[in-house]
Design a protein around this nucleic acid. Structure first.
Length: 289
DNA sequence: GTCCAGGGAATCA
DNA sequence: TGATTCCATGGA
């Protein structure tokens, strides 16, 4: 495969750290020079900031690099407009957006996002990344680039004969059976990912996702928000979001006892159909700062 | 040794 | 419906 290069000139909303460290993805890693290298589909790419431009260098198996980047980085969406709207809600939103102003929500592969967020349950980001890396190395396809070997995220077919014990050996812990069962359900057609992609009804898609093993409300919402399903109105609630929502708007003495429905209600009232974006700014802001 | 992590499922009231 | 408890693993 031939190396390609693409230069993104002076993007308004685009910051490598904000995009890759805000918790939406697990396969991008910072390099010694401050650039980031990652893999999606069968693309291996390094992104380096040069002045106000971003230089993308890498290999792209199908199609051309520019199109792949355009889709993956959600370049058709006007984030300036979204941030402007959310900033007017209150000063908390204004501060959190200022902190994560370079965030873009990636259009990640649905299957990969489902498995990645099943793995994320009661887990921490460094370990999630490690598990996904080992899973890809064990069952994905190798891609050589720039003297290193990268591995694609394994397809359902590539995980077809993997046993629960083999998952456990990768360090998946109690999530081994969930991965096994969900892969089986998708291979058997009990859940059809193509149909999900084509269904505009978010609540219907959510209900279907919830039938998958290891997918509860929070994981389903992350899938809806971070995959190419791209439903910006959902509001995933994890320990960090519950924490920040309680600190800002609810002020309960014991944050662990805050009712989830109360959080959802406030999120819908304040953020409306942009709740997912608001959630992401708040999550990143609270977790990093 | 203890606590915690981008929670979910099983169980019980 | 709502609350409790258990579930591996690794780092702080």
């Amino acid at each position: 495969m031939k190396e390609q290069q693409y230069i993104l000139k002076k993007p308004e909303t685009f910051n490598l750290k904000d995009i890759f460290e805000c918790g939406q993805c697990f396969r991008w890693n910072e390099q010694e020079d401050g650039s980031y290298t990652g893999i999606w589909k069968e693309n291996v790419v390094n992104i380096k900031k040069e002045g106000q431009d971003y230089v993308f260098t890498g290999i792209c198996k199908n199609g051309n690099l520019e199109d792949e980047i355009h889709t993956y980085f959600d370049m058709d969406r006007n984030y300036e407009e979204i941030k402007e709207k959310l900033s007017h809600i209150d000063n908390y939103m204004k501060d959190s957006i200022q902190y994560g102003k370079g965030i873009r929500i990636l259009n990640q592969d649905l299957w990969e996002t489902i498995i990645s967020f099943i793995i994320s349950a009661n887990n921490n980001i460094p370990r999630i990344k490690g598990i996904i890396e080992r899973l890809s190395k064990a069952y994905g396809k190798p891609i050589e680039w720039n003297g290193k070997t990268y591995y694609t995220f394994p397809t359902p077919e590539e995980l077809k004969n993997v046993t629960v014990e083999q998952y456990r050996a990768l360090g998946l812990g109690f999530r081994d059976i969930r991965l096994y069962e969900t892969t089986k359900m998708i291979l058997e057609g009990k859940v059809n990912l193509k149909e999900l992609e084509e269904n505009p009804n978010t609540m219907e898609v959510r209900e279907t996702l919830l039938t998958l093993s290891g997918v509860g409300p929070k994981v389903a919402d992350c899938i809806l928000l971070f995959s190419d399903l791209k439903r910006l109105e959902v509001f995933p609630i994890d320990v960090w979001v519950r924490r920040v929502m309680n600190d800002l708007y609810i002020k309960n003495e014991d944050e662990t006892k805050v009712n989830k429905k109360q959080i959802e209600k406030i999120a819908k009232e304040k953020f409306g159909n942009l709740a997912g974006l608001a959630q992401q700014y708040l999550f990143y802001w609270r977790r990093e700062a």
